[in-house]
Lab assay of single mutants.
Amino acid sequence: GPMASDKRPRTAFTAEQLQRLKAEFQTNRYLTEQRRQSLAQELGLNESQIKIWFQNKRAK
């Protein structure tokens, strides 16, 4: 629909990254900035991508 703007492409996470994020989520529903930074480095992701993933996951 018209609401779907092309400005922010959805990140396609790899299965491996998703597995890691899910495991982290089961341990911590809320990430500290430090955890998020190390996860971002570990997974080669953007911190904001991880932050948003957690927000979306909590919203469900």
Rank of each mutant, 00 (worst) to 15 (best):
I50E: 00
Q55F: 10
L21E: 00
Q26L: 11
P9I: 03
A40W: 01
R58Q: 06
R35S: 06
S48R: 12
A59Y: 06
E47L: 04
L39A: 00
Q41V: 12
E33C: 11
G44D: 09
D6I: 06
T11M: 08
M3N: 12
R35Y: 09
E16D: 10
A4I: 12
P2R: 01
F54Q: 01
I52R: 15
A40V: 04
N56P: 02
E47R: 04
Q49P: 02
A59C: 11
N28Q: 06
A4E: 14
E42L: 06
R10V: 15
L43S: 02
Q37I: 12
K51H: 14
P9S: 03
Q34F: 09
R29D: 05
N28M: 04
R20T: 05
T14L: 03
T32S: 11
K51C: 08
P2G: 12
A59I: 09
Q26G: 05
Q41D: 12
E42M: 04
Q55I: 11
R10T: 15
E47K: 04
Q34T: 11
P2Q: 13
Q41P: 01
I50C: 01
S38G: 10
Q34I: 12
S48V: 12
R58F: 07
F25L: 03
N46Q: 15
N46F: 12
R8S: 08
E33T: 13
F54H: 01
I50G: 00
T32N: 13
A15E: 09
S38D: 11
N46C: 09
P2M: 12
E33K: 12
R36S: 08
Q41M: 12
S5H: 08
E24P: 00
E24Y: 02
T27H: 13
I52G: 06
Q19I: 14
S38A: 12
F25P: 00
R8N: 10
L31C: 06
S38L: 14
I50V: 07
T14G: 03
K7Q: 12
T14E: 02
K51Q: 11
W53L: 03
L18I: 10
Q49K: 09
T27I: 14
G44R: 07
N46K: 15
S48I: 15
Q49M: 10
Q19R: 09
F54K: 00
E16N: 12
R10M: 15
E24S: 03
E24H: 02
R35I: 05
L39W: 01
L45N: 00
L21S: 00
Q41N: 13
N28K: 05
G44T: 04
R20I: 08
A23D: 12
D6Y: 01
Q37L: 11
E24I: 05
S38N: 13
E16Q: 13
R8K: 14
T27D: 07
I52T: 14
A59F: 05
R36D: 02
M3Y: 03
L39S: 00
F13L: 07
P9Q: 04
N56K: 15
W53G: 00
E16P: 03
L39Q: 00
L18N: 08
W53H: 01
A4V: 10
Q37T: 13
L21C: 02
A23W: 06
L21M: 05
A12L: 12
Q49Y: 12
T14W: 02
L45I: 06
Y30E: 07
Q17A: 05
W53I: 02
L45Q: 02
R58E: 05
L31V: 07
A40I: 02
K57G: 05
K51L: 10
L39E: 00
G1A: 08
G44I: 03
I52Q: 12
F54R: 00
K51N: 10
F13V: 04
Y30D: 05
Q17S: 03
R29M: 08
S5F: 02
Q41Y: 09
F25S: 02
K22M: 10
L18M: 06
E33D: 13
L18K: 11
R20A: 08
R10E: 15
K22T: 10
L39M: 05
E24L: 03
A12T: 12
L21Y: 00
L31P: 14
K60F: 03
P2F: 05
K57E: 11
Q37W: 08
Q34G: 13
L45E: 01
R36M: 11
A12K: 15
E33R: 14
K60N: 07
S38W: 10
W53N: 00
G1Y: 14
K57F: 05
N46R: 08
G1C: 14
A40L: 02
R36P: 02
G1P: 13
Q49R: 14
A12C: 13
R29P: 10
K51T: 09
E33G: 12
S38Q: 15
K60Y: 06
R36K: 14
Q19S: 13
Y30F: 09
F13W: 15
A4D: 09
G44E: 05
E16H: 11
A23C: 07
A23Q: 15
R20S: 04
W53Y: 05
F13G: 01
Q55E: 09
E16I: 12
Q41T: 09
K51P: 01
R58T: 08
S5Q: 13
Q34H: 13
A15R: 12
L31E: 08
Q41A: 10
N28V: 03
S5D: 14
A12G: 07
R29Y: 04
Q55K: 15
L18G: 03
M3K: 08
G1W: 07
A40N: 01
K57M: 13
D6L: 03
E16S: 12
F13A: 02
K7H: 12
E24N: 01
T11R: 15
Q34D: 11
A15K: 15
N28Y: 04
E16V: 12
T11Q: 14
K57V: 06
R29G: 04
F54G: 01
N28E: 06
R20L: 05
N56D: 06
P9V: 04
R36T: 11
E16C: 07
T27M: 14
Y30V: 07
R29T: 05
R29E: 04
A40D: 00
K51W: 12
K7G: 13
F13K: 02
T32C: 07
A23M: 09
A23F: 06
Y30R: 05
T14N: 07
L39I: 10
R8C: 14
F25M: 02
T11I: 11
Q37M: 11
Q55R: 14
T14Q: 03
T32W: 04
L45T: 05
I50R: 00
K60T: 09
Q37K: 12
K22H: 10
Q55P: 01
E24D: 02
L43M: 06
E47M: 04
